[in-house]
């Protein structure tokens, strides 16, 4: 019973934090876009415009709800639901902190540590594409359909390369559980130093999976009006936009836990604090890393223009996947060498 209660509280906290961060990511996106373009950005709602996400949310809820008469009603509603559900589900396996020891019992700050952790993330992400596909198809609109088709082919292509990058990582760490991967990067032994190519591949694929610029072809305004969510309005549109930001938050969390040590930080052992304090500091640092990557996502968005579709496919299939295979081979040699099974 106590176990369930703790897990329930953790789920609620993670859910609220994901939603809160996603909401403020919209604000941060507008602010960063403005700053990078020498503007000020939203500053009218509250001090520094901090209430802007609230205003946006209220606006989204107040908007008229339109379901096209020729749309497939059920699937039209199902689309944003799947999108939102899958993006919220991924946070389950991410270790947010080492854990707290209270009265002799150890409580890890993670909802669940399943032994297929990273595969779970891949599974959920691969389901996420249905949200876009179903929504785009059910809208009964050519632009939406084009967006949906682009989204699905893009996500499948880049999922492969992402998988390749992660396979190399699994080879060095020898585990699928994200928590164990993070524990292995204790101190400053971050995976990015052993897997630099894998990291670059992973982050590029993460951009593509989140449909962020330069890979935002599914909602490419210049060609497709609004892409897969052209026909959506009100909070259903809000769900699509919001899910994108949750996805961004989750992928930032996964990147920082897979390659940047998660809640580990350099000189963790030299500080001499009690484990509980170290754990709290670690969680804060983990969030710092996440915020940096969210910023990086936005920074890239306001720097690089969008790919052309054939360039996107070319990059995915002819560059990323061969590089991924190369990385796997290189990692194999590295692992053998490290285990002393290879002599030069």
């Amino acid at each position: 019973m106590e176990f369930l209660l703790i897990k329930f509280v953790l789920v609620v906290i993670v859910f609220v934090i994901s939603l809160g961060i996603a909401a403020y990511s919209t604000y941060a996106e507008r602010k960063i876009a403005a700053f990078l373009q020498d503007r000020v950005g939203p500053d009218r709602a509250g001090p520094f415009g901090l209430l802007q996400p609230v205003a946006d949310g209220v606006k989204m809820f107040m908007k008229e709800e339109i379901i096209p008469s020729n749309a497939d009603r059920l699937l039209f509603i199902l689309g944003p639901c799947i999108m939102m559900m899958t993006s919220c589900m991924t946070g389950v396996v991410i270790p947010w902190g080492h854990g707290l020891e209270i009265n002799g019992t150890f409580y890890p700050v993670q909802i669940t540590d399943i032994n297929i952790g990273i595969l779970y993330v891949f599974g959920v992400v691969s389901i996420g594409v249905y949200g876009i596909m179903i929504g785009g198809w059910a809208s009964n609109n050519k632009y939406s359909l084009m967006g949906a088709i682009r989204a699905s082919s893009q996500m499948i292509s880049y999922e492969l390369a992402m998988g390749m990058a992660v396979i190399a990582l699994i080879m060095t760490t020898g585990t699928l559980s994200i928590r164990e991967m993070v524990e292995q990067q204790h101190g400053f032994h971050w995976n990015v130093f052993t897997q630099p190519l894998g990291f670059v591949l992973f982050i590029i694929c993460a951009f593509a999976e989140c449909n962020r610029t330069p890979f935002d072809l599914p909602e490419c305004e210049t060609e497709l009006v609004g892409g897969y969510h052209t026909e959506y309005s009100s909070m259903k549109l809000g769900f699509y936009l919001f899910a994108e930001y949750i996805n961004m938050f989750i992928s930032a969390a996964i990147i920082s836990s897979l390659y940047f040590g998660g809640y580990n930080f350099p000189f963790i052992d030299q500080l001499g604090f009690s484990p509980n304090i170290l754990s709290i500091v670690g969680t804060l640092i983990f969030f710092g890393k996440i915020f940096f990557f969210i910023f990086f996502f936005m920074w890239i968005r306001w720097t690089i223009p969008r790919f052309r579709y054939d360039q996107l496919m070319h990059l995915g299939w002819r560059t990323m996947i061969p590089l991924g295979i190369l990385n796997i081979l290189g990692t194999g040699v590295y692992v053998l060498y490290k285990n002393g099974q290879l002599h030069f």
């Binding site: 891949f122 599974g123 992400v125 691969s126 389901i127 594409v129 249905y130 596909m133 198809w137 359909l145 949906a148 088709i149 699905s152 082919s153 996500m155 499948i156 999922e159």
Partner: peptide, 12 residues
Amino acid sequence: GAIMVLFLFTLM
């Protein structure tokens, strides 16, 4: 995640 997406893709 992958094969059925391709199915759906073609069907659309």
